[in-house]
């Protein structure tokens, strides 16, 4: 296989990498760039643990080829906090005990941030359907939904 050279932007930083033509972006992030915050729970787009945004759209990075990242803007969990200042969602997840094992947490945070960008004041039902692409096996989702509600409220300045 001949490698594909890709120039892209990840969390605001210019990044170049070479990957196999059939290599998922998730593998590139994790194995080539050391960005292991995105997790592989299934590799088939069914669990959301590898969620990132690509040009602002929420996607599963396991269903994107690394080669497709050329010229795109990628945001991962590693870029969510502003320096040492956690994002309100990150704080709310900790304070609401919205994580137990934490493996799904990066994906939930990315998905929740994308949800709140589109809908600043979602109902419980909108949160539940908005996060239906992210599986959590520990919490029963209760505390996750509450954390998103709390963060949304804070972000609205309410």
């Amino acid at each position: 296989m001949s490698g594909v050279h890709v120039s892209t932007t990840i969390n605001g930083d210019p990044i170049d990498f070479v990957c196999d033509p059939d290599e998922p972006l998730l593998d590139v992030l994790r194995n080539r760039l050391g960005l292991t915050g995105a997790k592989e729970g299934c590799g088939t787009g069914d669990c959301g643990a590898c969620s990132i945004t690509l040009d602002g759209e929420l996607v599963c990075s396991c269903l994107v080829l690394g080669a497709e990242a050329e010229g795109r803007k990628i945001e991962t969990i590693e870029g969510m906090a502003d320096g040492d200042k956690l994002h309100p969602l990150q704080r709310a997840f900790i304070s609401n005990a919205a994580l137990q094992c934490g493996i799904c947490t990066p994906g939930f945070l990315i998905a929740a941030k994308a949800l709140l960008k589109k809908n600043k004041n979602p109902t419980e039902e909108e949160i539940r359907f908005g996060l239906a692409g992210n599986l959590c096996r520990c919490t029963g989702y209760d505390k996750i939904v509450r954390a998103v509600q709390e963060a949304a409220k804070e972000m609205r300045g309410a």
Binding site: R30, L35, T36, G37, A38, K39, E40, T76, I77, E78, M80, A81, L86, Q90, F93, I94, S95, A97, L99, G102, I103, T105, P106, L109
Partner: peptide
């Protein structure tokens, strides 16, 4: 109900799991 000690690592993607 204090904050858990591994919370920050787990919300920032720094926590290291089996494959990390």
């Amino acid at each position: 109900r204090p904050l858990r000690p591994d919370g920050v690592d787990k919300v920032t993607g720094r926590a290291r799991y089996g494959a990390d």
